[in-house]
């Protein structure tokens, strides 16, 4: 009977594949990556003393004037909740999309066109970056709130700017948390 003869291989192969791919493979990857890339494997966490103050790959919510602000974030219940990533999923004609963009623009208090990344939500809700133009726009506000020269703020931004990989892949981008750590004197 052809059905019966397949039952043993089904059970045995499922057991084998579960042990191999569900156990040995992820644990071998764990051993290799924890050894070779320990900090990355643990989440590229940033510590201040013993306290974790963030991850260099995960954005944080900034609303105070002395900080550089990032993308909008649609995660709930609060923005930049890295325990429950989410995009807004607004369609192009959804009124809520335009309301969020307009509210952000008003909060920034700028006239004229703004870089689109500053008034839109990222896909993950955790985007750690903004475009250099979006950072540049905020320099006067930050400088004023901190009583710093604009040049000082700009140098913090430049030090936290990455160019496309090999000059080709991806976009130029500013790591928002890094800029703010530099402005706070918590990172050189």
């Amino acid at each position: 009977m052809s059905l019966l003869k397949h039952i043993q291989p089904t059970l045995a192969s499922l057991a084998f594949f579960t042990l191999l791919f569900g156990g040995a493979y992820p644990l071998a990857t764990l051993a290799i990556t924890q050894t070779a890339f320990h900090s990355q494997a643990e989440g590229s966490l940033i510590r201040n003393g013993n306290t974790v103050i963030g991850s260099s790959l995960i954005g944080q919510n900034f609303t105070q004037p002395q900080y550089l602000w990032g993308r909008l974030s649609a995660t709930g219940p609060a923005p930049f909740n890295a325990g429950a990533s989410s995009g807004s999923n607004y369609g192009v004609n959804n009124p809520a999309l335009i309301e969020a963009a307009t509210a952000r623009r008003e909060a920034m208090g700028v006239s004229g066109p703004v870089p689109v990344d500053l008034i839109t939500a990222s896909g993950s809700g955790l985007d750690p970056h903004i475009s250099p133009a979006a950072a540049d726009l905020q320099v006067p506000r930050i400088a004023q709130a901190r009583g710093l020269s604009e040049a000082k703020v700009r140098s913090a931004i430049e030090a936290s700017t990455e160019q496309p990989t090999l000059g080709l892949l991806g976009e130029p981008r500013v790591n928002v948390l890094q800029v703010n750590l530099r402005l706070d004197g918590k990172q050189k």
Binding site: Q40, G43, L45, I58, Q60, F62, Y67, N81, A82
Partner: peptide
Amino acid sequence: LASQGVIQTLEPYVVAKTLEGADQTIAL
């Protein structure tokens, strides 16, 4: 991928104290 920052850990989620003083849960 891990060399680029993709995580591989069995640690529980961490709670970070953000610069603006909020608690940020980071899933791992």
